[in-house]
Design a protein around this nucleic acid. Structure first.
Length: 773
DNA sequence: CAGTGAGCGAGCTTCCGCTTGACTT
């Protein structure tokens, strides 16, 4: 018999807490939200004050029925979901779904999973905060209304299956607009002048590097300057030394973990979260979806011990960080090792690398500042007003740098500042070499997954639990693609003064190379332009921040949630209706030119299945020809020649076994079609060049493979086969596949065996609901 | 790397936030 039932959100948490609470408590988890708006139609009763229609989420039916059973016998029920808007709503939904008495049910909260924190929570139960629940309902209903009214509009005006929403559409907008900025960016260049000097001192030669405090726009200016240097005297005019310090970054939140794992380990956002989840489930780190930089007392003490022991007390500096992120809800701690004294974590390579990163970041956040000394040496040029500057930086005390240094998104090039030699004012020097090199201005950087998350967090858009899913959604919808792109060779000029001679050379560099960056697609551009044009208010970067303020007012009981939704919805709905009526279907259609062979018009536009070219006007009598754009082609950039190339397929190669052999290209690349069967071309085959002999070869190759694939057939039973598939041998019958039980030799199964397997197998969801991608 | 290869007369798609399993040969 259960005395006390405590319900938390995460099963890993449940296990830990049960250990703290003793035998009178059973701790179970509800796995997050248990109810949601009905999926059909809007799930909101607009006429009657926006009453939400909630259903128990299909995958939570079992969770709820299990919890009900335990709750029935429990004397007391404690709802311990997270202390934020969503957590409060989860508690309330549990009351509703489990049929609990709200008055008798206790609501408790804690920010850290430590024994004192849990016990304190148990001592201080409260009631469910209905205002906070209402704020969540407003959030949920607003997102549903926006998403489920805008998306169908896109299906009608652009293409089926598209989606729009408060979060994803703004994420796409960021990428589209960044690309436009880049397209409009005017590259300029200027000459940067670097010198290497020789100082003769105590019979030794000392080298000193310095940069001129001015860049020259024109080559002639640079040359004129170097001409002057030929006859100039150089001497130290001033030495300025000043102390400075660096402080460690705060411990990880979801967003900063994703950024650092991306920069330092090259992890995708989704990969980081997968690995972090594994570390969490095995008890090695605290919860990985958090916006808080707070560390528990327990963690602070342990960090101090570890640092003292490993590096000495002078490296300790206990710090409490405060969150400055917009809309942060701080229901958890920062992401940290559960026990800081575990320097490493067992597990696979990814797990131990990510753990190492988390360990270092957490420890560093509790260490002392690094003390530096920066030195600026000003070098006078006797016949010119410009000065050369040599910079040095010395670490006087390494502090937290001993373990960890945060990386930056853009690594600044060749600005290495190191130790300077001992120097005195008035000392003279001679230039060994002075270089004026043409440097180009850089366009704003394209987003990586992680830098997009950073930007979204700054705007208060999305939550720790949704960053990774949002990024995969906008890629799945094909609004953006993550790709590498080749750079281009660019020429630059370098002018060198050595001794008394000036030489000029043209060199080349590779520029614009991109690795795993986000690019908008044609569809992304089209959808974004449509939404920005008609729903500028929703796509506004401040929309979320504005509605969040209203959600806060609901949470404080200042305004009523469905009144707020009412005020938002009706003007918004009018906007949708008007756009539906007024605006034309958009396809981004462009006339590229005419086919020189037939004189027909060649168009490019978005079709039902994405970007495509069309030959001939749309005419029911004389149907035009279509072809999809190839990967890497875009409506924006495709040329007439490239478009014509696409119509060269399908080609009829000839006849084999009395049937035509046709080559074409489809979703999965080029293929040969023969007797309504398909044969993929090899990577080395060119569909425009391939001849019938090679096609026949491909057909025969695949037929042979097919034969080998079949382990056994049964003449008595049509369609029953034992095949060798990707996951090993399996049974197939009437379009259904069946697993062969372990320990059976697939080659020796009798017909009876097979029928038995088919009979005994679960009536599985035979047809896979969704195809991947 | 098993199957897939549209351009539609039918029916479906879609939001954001919480949480983890999945078994499919």
């Amino acid at each position: 018999m259960t005395k006390n039932l405590v319900i938390v959100e995460s099963p890993a948490k449940a296990k830990t807490i049960e250990n703290f609470l003793g035998k009178d408590f059973v701790v179970k988890s509800c796995f997050g939200h248990v109810r949601d708006l009905a999926k059909k139609d809007l799930g909101v009763d607009i006429e009657n004050g926006f009453i939400p229609q909630y259903i128990i989420t299909p995958d939570k039916k079992k969770v709820i029925s299990d919890l009900k059973k335990i709750a029935k016998d429990a004397e007391m029920i404690w709802l311990a979901s997270d202390e934020d808007r969503e957590g409060e709503a989860i508690a309330w939904h549990l009351v509703e779904a489990l049929g609990l008495n709200e008055i008798e049910t206790k609501r408790i909260v804690f920010h850290e999973i430590t024994k004192p924190a849990i016990l304190e929570a148990i001592e201080n139960p409260r009631k469910i905060d209905k205002n906070l629940v209402d704020a969540q309902q407003a959030r949920r209903v607003l997102d549903r209304l926006v998403g489920f009214e805008l998306s169908p509009l896109l299906w009608k005006k652009i293409k089926p299956s598209l989606s729009a929403g408060r979060v994803q559409s703004v994420a796409v907008r960021l990428i589209v607009e960044r690309e436009e900025e880049i397209k409009g960016f005017a590259v300029t260049s200027a000459y940067r002048v670097l010198a290497e000097f020789i100082i003769n001192k105590d019979n030794k030669q000392i080298l000193l590097s310095a940069e001129l405090n001015k860049r020259f726009k024109e080559k002639q200016e640079a040359i004129a300057f170097l001409e002057k240097c030929k006859s100039a005297d150089f001497s130290i005019e001033d030495i300025e030394t000043k102390p400075s310090k660096k402080s460690p970054a705060p411990p990880f939140t979801t967003s900063t973990l994703q950024q650092e794992a991306s920069r330092k380990l090259g992890f995708s956002v989704a990969n980081t979260m997968r690995v972090a989840q594994q570390l969490y489930e095995s008890g090695k780190i605290t919860y990985m979806r958090t916006d808080s930089v707070n560390l528990s007392k327990f963690a602070l003490n342990l960090a101090e011990e570890v640092i003292t022991e490993s590096f000495g007390p002078q490296y300790v500096k206990t710090r409490q960080y405060t969150t400055r992120t917009k809309g942060a809800q701080e229901a958890h701690e920062a992401i940290r090792p559960t026990y800081m004294n575990n320097r490493t974590a067992e597990g696979d390579h990814s797990q131990s690398r990510l753990y190492d990163l988390i360990w270092k970041r957490t420890i560093a956040s509790q260490m002392s500042d690094a003390l530096l000394e920066k030195t600026n040496v000003t070098i006078n040029i006797s016949n010119a007003p410009e000065k050369f500057i040599a910079r040095g930086e010395v670490i006087k005390f390494d502090g937290f740098l001993k373990v960890y240094m945060e990386s930056r998104d853009e690594e600044d090039d060749d600005n290495q500042e190191g130790l300077l030699p001992p120097l005195n004012v008035g000392e003279t020097m001679i230039p060994r070499e002075i270089n004026a090199q043409e440097k180009f201005s850089q366009h704003p950087p394209r987003y990586t997954e992680a830098s997009l998350v950073k930007k979204m967090e700054e705007l208060g858009i999305g939550r720790p639990s949704t960053y990774a899913p949002t990024i995969s959604t906008i890629q799945k919808r094909e609004y953006v693609v993550k790709e590498d792109r080749d750079g281009m060779i660019r020429k630059y000029c370098q002018i060198t003064l050595q001794g008394k001679t000036i030489t000029e050379v043209i060199k080349t560099e590779n520029t614009g190379f991109e690795k795993a960056k986000l690019f908008p697609t044609d569809i992304g551009n089209l959808v974004n332009n449509f939404l920005v044009q008609h729903f500028n208010n929703i796509l506004d970067y401040n929309f979320t921040a504005t509605v969040e303020e209203e959600f806060d007012e609901i949470a404080q009981g200042k305004i009523v949630w469905n009144q707020m939704i009412h005020d938002f919805y009706f003007p918004f709905h009018d906007q949708v209706e008007k756009t539906l009526e007024k605006s034309q279907k958009v396809s981004g259609e462009k006339l590229l030119g005419k086919d020189p062979a037939t004189g027909e018009n060649i168009f490019v536009r978005i079709g039902r299945y994405g970007p495509m070219v069309q030959k001939g006007d749309t005419d029911p009598e004389n149907k035009p020809k279509f072809s999809s754009l190839k990967k890497g082609q875009s409506i924006d950039t495709i040329t007439l020649e490239e478009a014509l190339e696409l119509f060269k397929l399908p080609r009829t190669l000839g006849v084999y076994e009395d049937e035509e052999v046709i080559v074409s290209t489809g979703r999965f690349g080029p293929y040969v079609k023969h007797k309504s069967a398909f044969y993929s071309l090899a990577k080395t085959d060119d569909p425009l060049e391939i001849m019938v002999d090679r096609a026949v070869e491909l057909i025969q190759e695949k037929r042979k493979k097919e034969e080998e694939k079949t382990i056994r057939e049964f003449p008595e039973k049509e369609g029953l086969k034992i095949l060798n598939g990707r996951y090993g041998p399996y049974l197939t019958y009437q379009k259904q596949n069946f697993k062969i039980p372990k320990g059976k030799d697939p080659g020796k199964l009798t017909l009876e065996d097979c029928l038995k397997i088919i009979h005994e197998s679960e009536p599985s969801k035979a047809t896979r609901a969704k195809r991947r991608k």
